[in-house]
Structures are given as structure tokens and as C-alpha cells.
Amino acid sequence: MNIFRLAGDMTHLASVLVLLLKIHTIKSCAGISLKTQELFAIVFLTRYLDLFTNFISIYNTIMKLIFLGSSFSIVWYIRRHRVVRRSYDKDQDTFRHFFLMWPCLILAIFINEKFTLKEVMWTFSIYLEAIAILPQLVMLQRTRNIDNLTGQYIFLLGAYRAFYILNWIYRYFTEEHYVHWITWVAGVIQTLLYGDFFYYYFQSWKNNVKLELPA
């Protein structure tokens, strides 16, 4: 565990907590894409199939449980919670997200490290995570007005990705045989998707004005 990996995990954790805070205390999921949240739940489900068979550390196990539990409870809140679901902006969240899964699955079947069910599902989760933010970004672009918590949520998610790249660079130079083409390519693509958002986030922060995306 290096400082970049820890910073990445902590910003990831913070992003989830910010979103849960918004949903749980304000009882609102305005501006949040259910499609993206459903994709994240599928990402964690398919990635952590080895939760009980491959022990890495207590830290890893607890974090996996947190990400699984939080992603499914967020989906539950938006779909089922009596108050929260009324704030869900269904008309702005029209991305056909399940169609994103097919290319990821096909790619995972052909491009993987080892052709076993667990390994293909893990690879699928890496590809799917890379593009899971797309419905959320489309929704942001449509609503344009972004409340503070939604902005912070997406900023923290992007920060998590950026820290993971620094973590890989660090590990590449400090560990022997640390080459992970699949995670690296998917991870860099994923991080680039946040680039545009980051630009406008920092602009609004620098000029101290409300975050608003251009039409």
C-alpha cells in the first residue's frame, strides 16, 4: 500500500459517502444518474466474486464490503425509497446503459489474462467501470446546473481515478513485474472521461462561481 493508492481509495470512499449523505439526509437524488449507479453496482458485484475465496487483507475485505453495500443501497434508495425516488430526474436519465455491457463482455471474453469465469468477470468489471460514468456525464450536460454535493461527488470520483494512475506509476517503478495493461488502458480512458468535468470544476472554483457546464 502506497500513499497514492490510499489517497485513491479514500477519495473513492469519500465520493460514496458524499452521495449517501446527499441521499440520506437531504432525501434527494436530484442530478444523480440511476443508470450510472446501477452500472457501478454491477461493476462491484462482478469484480468481487473472489470476496470469500481470495483473501488479500482485512482492509481490502472491508472496503469491498463497503463498496458493494453502498452501491446497492444507493440503487435501492433511488428506485424504492418513498421520498428519494420522487427527486429522481428520470426524463434526463435516458442513457441505454445496459447496451454498454455487451461490448465490455465481448471484450472481456477476448482480451483477458486468463480464460476462467472469475477472471473474465473481473476483466468485464474493469472495462465496465471505465465507461460507467457516461450516463452521469450525459445527465450533467443536460441539466447543466449542478448542486454542490453532486459536483463534489463527481470530483471525488475523478480524483480517485487520478490517484490510481499515480499509484500504478509508483508501483511500476518500485515492484518487479508489475505490468497490468488491461487495468492501465481502461483506467486511463476512465480518467480522461473526467477531464472535461475537471476543467469546468476548477474554473468555477477559481472564479468562485456556481458550477455550470456549457450547453
Binding site: D50, I56, N60, K64, K114, E176, H177, Y178, V179, H180
Partner: peptide, 10 residues
């Protein structure tokens, strides 16, 4: 490579 399939990241 040894680290390849460890999946020690989250």
C-alpha cells in the same frame, strides 16, 4: 508475472 492475477487493488 507474479503480481498479475493477485487483484490486490479495489
Amino acid at each position: 508475472a507474479k503480481a498479475h492475477l493477485d487483484h490486490d487493488e479495489l
